[in-house]
Structures are given as structure tokens and as C-alpha cells.
Write a protein that binds this DNA or RNA. Structure first.
Lengths: 305, 305
DNA sequence: GGACAACATAGGTATCTCCTAGGGAAGCCG
DNA sequence: CGGCTTCCCTAGGAGATACCTATGTTGTCC
């Protein structure tokens, strides 16, 4: 069986023209190198050195094989170097899951932070929907993710809340922003809600629904859209009001609905963001890095817990 | 310590997405592959697979490393293939020593024969002078050679005569070719002799000198040249006679001195060609090939012994 | 001819590699 | 929901390997 060690011994011997010198360079005893060369010759079925009295002389076969051996060792060294570079975040890919409103107002900053600290890496911020992220985590395709809590099927998952964001009512009618919104008021409101496709798993909707249920009321959603941006624009046009996390409101309102504002619920409702990964897993340095940066980013726009 | 075996296990596992499947493909038990992967991860300092419940999932590090591992294994396979091609004479270099008049009239044919049988090989037919050939043999730089015998310092050398060639007298004076030349006649002749530089070791000269010494005479050499061709041309011009092996005479006279001819000595003198290599050495297939072809070639122009 | 230098050989030990056997977790299915 | 299967891990042991030191052999140099 051909081995890198044999090739190393071969090259050292070839270059020094001596087993003893090669052994000295490699830090072995002379018989060890001798044995490796013999094993290599047997493995390849060719004679590499003529044992001539005192000393060894490379055969023409050795001349022919030398560049191949060098290329092989160089490729191995290259493999090792690539691994080290990845370990140091000088290159490689960092994959992280992030779903929902969190990605909307922390995603770009998160990617920017990672690229600023590690310019050589590729970043993959995945997560089309909550179920997909959870499936990826469960199957091991994702190591860690940040998601809003209510939707977590947490068997075997480690869930660490890192921030909570108040859920607020937004409207372009100043009248409705005068005082905190009650369940009754919300029940009577005309609403536009985003994330239609994932409405059943959307943490904001789940939080609001359970909040309303305790008052015996049902939410009334008049308009369903996918993008939070569109929902906010519709609020700006006065066609409906909406319910979104406060961080999103503060980011989107000035840009998309300057005449609108937000107001708390009474009692207040919160959305909680958490880091999720498989329970019992040892997190890789890359995952730890992403968790650290994502946490810092989300805590810049939501309250730390 | 990184090893090719570890890389093989890594690639098999990566491609199958399973340690068990990889082990089956490689013909090992599953724990063996598992151990190799673990050793590779430790050696590189990175995690290559996430152990997730049943099954393993490659990390992004594994994605990054895979092409490097493939290149390394390909280079190793390339090394092995090169060795096999050399062993089958499909490529590589064949080096052989040949000195003196033998090369002159068997060298080109020898090279042609080798190239005809093994079109891919490089051929080196070395031997500027007898002493150099012997030194190369002794030092191991040459594995085997064909040389004329008298000059062999045979300690530690295996000498196998394969052909003998009569040494003849050449002249453009028909009078001198009438009957075999005696020692007295040779002592009175005006001679041109080739191989000036190596005159002390030239087998023809040694043979002739000892032949003359038994008659108490000394050779008279009027002209010294390097090339046998020039000596023969001078003979053709009638400026001197010469003494060369019959094989050389038959090849050179028609071309360079059509009006000249040759005649034996009385008693006859012979030059013996032998295969020489280090005693006790096991000959490589390449050397055996060259010996076989060179012997056949030389026996085509000289008498086999 | 004696001293030295370089490789081969021998023998012992530690490590590595591979196996079999058995345990535990996750997924599949009745 | 409980049993079965699948897949990986761990443990322990046998055989091979790699390395060492000590010694023998041979060629070289003085």
C-alpha cells in the first residue's frame, strides 16, 4: 500500500543520495528509512536505488518517479493547508439559518459583520421558511439557526432565547395610536398581515392569536401579503393597519410609511428570538462565531433577555 | 499524521453519506472507517462530518476539502501508474554503457531495436571512454555495459564474453594484403591508429601490443587520430595502414576507402566483447533487455562465443 | 591493513489498524 | 405507541506496522 510517508522518505533519500542523511533530516534512525524505501519499491514493483557498496544510487526509475512523488506530497500539503485556512476562517463556507422577521432587519448586518471580520469566507444565510429550517437542523444540514420561538418543535433541540422584541400595532391614523391597543380594539381592526404562506407557523401571528384567544376574540385579517414591506406600504396608504415587531416597525416605517406610527398593546405582546441547534452537539467554531455575531446584531434592535 | 488511506475513507464516506456504505465499498468493517475519519479530523483539526442520529452529514469544511483530497489521491494514483508504465517499458529511461568500436557499429542498431520494441522509452547509450564506463559501473551510475575485454579491471565485476571479432590489417596497397601479416611485417608498417586519447586502454592496441611483444618488437604508430573514420580515410588515401576489428573494417572500408582491403594476421588476433556489470547485483529488467539486444546486435557482426 | 562510513539484518517494543461484539439513538412501521 | 431496523459508537483483542538499538558486512580512505 502506497503511503505519503514512503514518498517522503524516498524524496529525502533521493535528494541526499544517502539513507543515513535522509534519516537524519527526517529525524528517524537509518534502518527505518531503509525499510520505508524497501516497502515503497515492493509496493510499486520497481527498484528505486541501487545499493552499491557504501551509499545508494538512484536508478532512472527514481528519476522518473521523483516529480510524481513531489506532486503527490505537494497535493497532500495543500490539503492540510486548506484545512488550516478553513479552521482560521481565512476561507471556506459558513452556513447559518435565520428565518422570519429577524433576517429582515439583522440579516444584512450579520453578513456584513462576518465578512468584515473574515474577508475570505463564503457566507450562506439560509432559511426560506420555518419548517425548512427546523428540518435542516434536525437532519444536520444546518448546524445552528436563529428563529422566533413559538414555532419550535423542540424535541432534541437546544433553544436559547437571546432577545425579545415587542409586537406593536402600526397605523397611519393618529387616532388609533393615541393609547395602547386592547384586545377588543384589535378584534375590530382592519388588518394587513405579511408572511401569508407561513401564516400557520409565523411567531407574530401565533403570539397575537393566543393573546386574542384569552379574550375570546378572533383576529380579523382583511389583507394577506408575503412581504412585510408591502404590508407597511399598505398601512402608509391608510388601507389597513398591521401588527409587526417593533424593530421592524422602526426600520420600515420611516422609509415606507412616513405618516404612520406604532403603539403598544395592553397588555404588551412580545416575540422572542432564540438560537436553536441540536441538543448535545458540540458547536463548531464557525457556528459559535455566527451565534455570537447574530446575537449581538439582534440585541442591537431588540431587548436582550 | 495525514495519510492517503484517511483521504480514501473520507471520500468514500462523503460520496455515500454513510460510514457503513463507505466501509462496504472499501471492504472494511464500519468501525475501521469511523476510526480513520476521526483520525483525519484530529489530524486536520476540523470537523468533517456531523454525527446526527442515524447517519453522518458532511460539514461545509468537508465540501471545501473534498476537491483537495481528490487531487491528492489522483496524484498518488498517478505516481503508481507512472511506476507501472516504467516497469512495462512504456515510458521511462533506459541507460546502458557501451564503449569503443562496439558502439560504432552496433550502437545505432541497438538503439533502433530498443525503440522499435518500446516506442515510449528514452534511451541513453553512454560511454565516452573506457575508464569512465568502468567508473560509472563501479559507482553504480551505470548498471551494465558492453565493452572490449582487455581493459577491464575486474575486481567485483561480472564479465561475460559474448562475441569475438578478428583484428585485421587494412591497407590500400594490394601488395600488403596478399598474405597474412606477421609480427615482423607489422613492426615495419607505417600505421595510423584511432582513439588517441584512450590509447593506453584501447583493447585493440593492447591486443596488438601484447601480440607484438611476444616477438620482441614494438608497434610503430606514425599517425594518431581520434576517430576510426579518419584513420580509415587516411588508409584509403594511401598515407598509412591501420589495424582495426574486422567488423569495423567491413563497415567502414566500402564507404571511406573503397580501394583498400583487409587481411588477417598470422597468427590471428582477436578482440573480445563482453557484458560487464557489478558482481552480485540482481539485474533490472531494463538492463536484461539491453544486454539481450546488445548481444544479438554485436553477434550479427562478430562471431558469438 | 586498519579505521571509518554506510547500508543490511536482527530482535524487541510501542503503536496502529483492523476485526468482532455489544450498546444506544433515530427512524420506520404495524 | 411499542417493536424492529439501521446506523454509529465503544470496547477489547489480534495481527501488522513502524520505530528503535545493537550488530554484521562491505567498500573506501589513509
Amino acid at each position: 500500500m502506497l503511503s505519503l510517508h514512503q514518498l517522503t522518505c524516498f524524496l529525502a533519500t533521493y535528494e541526499h543520495g544517502s539513507l543515513t542523511a535522509a534519516a537524519e533530516e527526517l529525524g528517524y534512525a537509518q534502518p527505518s528509512v531503509s525499510e520505508q524505501i524497501r516497502a515503497l519499491e515492493k509496493s510499486l514493483g520497481v527498484q528505486l536505488f541501487r545499493r552499491v557498496g557504501r551509499g545508494v544510487v538512484p536508478t532512472t526509475v527514481a528519476d522518473t518517479l521523483r516529480p510524481h512523488a513531489e506532486r503527490t506530497l505537494a497535493a497532500a500539503e495543500d490539503t492540510r493547508r486548506a484545512a488550516q485556512q478553513v479552521a482560521r476562517f481565512e476561507t471556506g463556507t459558513i452556513r447559518f439559518g435565520m428565518f422570519g422577521i429577524a433576517r429582515l432587519y439583522a440579516g444584512a448586518g450579520l453578513v456584513a459583520d462576518v465578512l468584515a471580520r473574515h474577508p475570505g469566507v463564503r457566507v450562506e444565510l439560509v432559511g426560506q421558511n420555518s419548517a425548512g429550517v427546523q428540518e435542516d437542523l434536525r437532519r444536520g444540514r444546518l448546524e445552528a439557526a436563529m428563529i422566533a420561538i413559538p414555532q419550535v418543535h423542540s424535541e432534541g433541540m437546544s433553544v436559547t432565547p437571546v432577545a425579545k422584541d415587542e409586537i406593536v400595532y402600526i397605523s397611519s391614523d393618529p387616532e388609533r395610536l393615541r393609547s395602547p391597543v386592547t384586545a377588543r380594539q384589535l378584534g375590530n381592526a382592519t388588518l394587513v398581515m405579511p408572511d401569508t404562506t407561513w401564516r400557520a407557523e409565523d411567531s407574530v401571528r401565533i403570539a397575537v392569536r393566543s393573546w386574542l384567544h384569552s379574550s375570546g376574540l378572533n383576529p380579523q385579517t382583511r389583507i394577506e401579503v408575503e412581504d412585510p414591506e408591502i404590508a407597511v406600504e399598505l398601512v402608509g396608504m391608510g388601507l389597513a393597519d398591521s401588527v409587526i415587531p417593533r424593530g421592524a416597525a422602526e426600520q420600515l416605517l420611516p422609509r415606507l410609511a412616513p405618516n404612520a406610527g406604532w403603539v403598544s398593546f395592553r397588555p404588551k405582546i412580545h416575540d422572542v428570538f432564540a438560537i436553536v441547534h441540536r441538543a448535545g452537539a458540540t458547536l463548531s467554531p464557525a457556528a459559535q462565531l455566527m451565534i455570537e455575531i447574530a446575537t449581538r446584531r439582534i440585541q442591537a434592535v431588540a431587548q436582550p433577555v
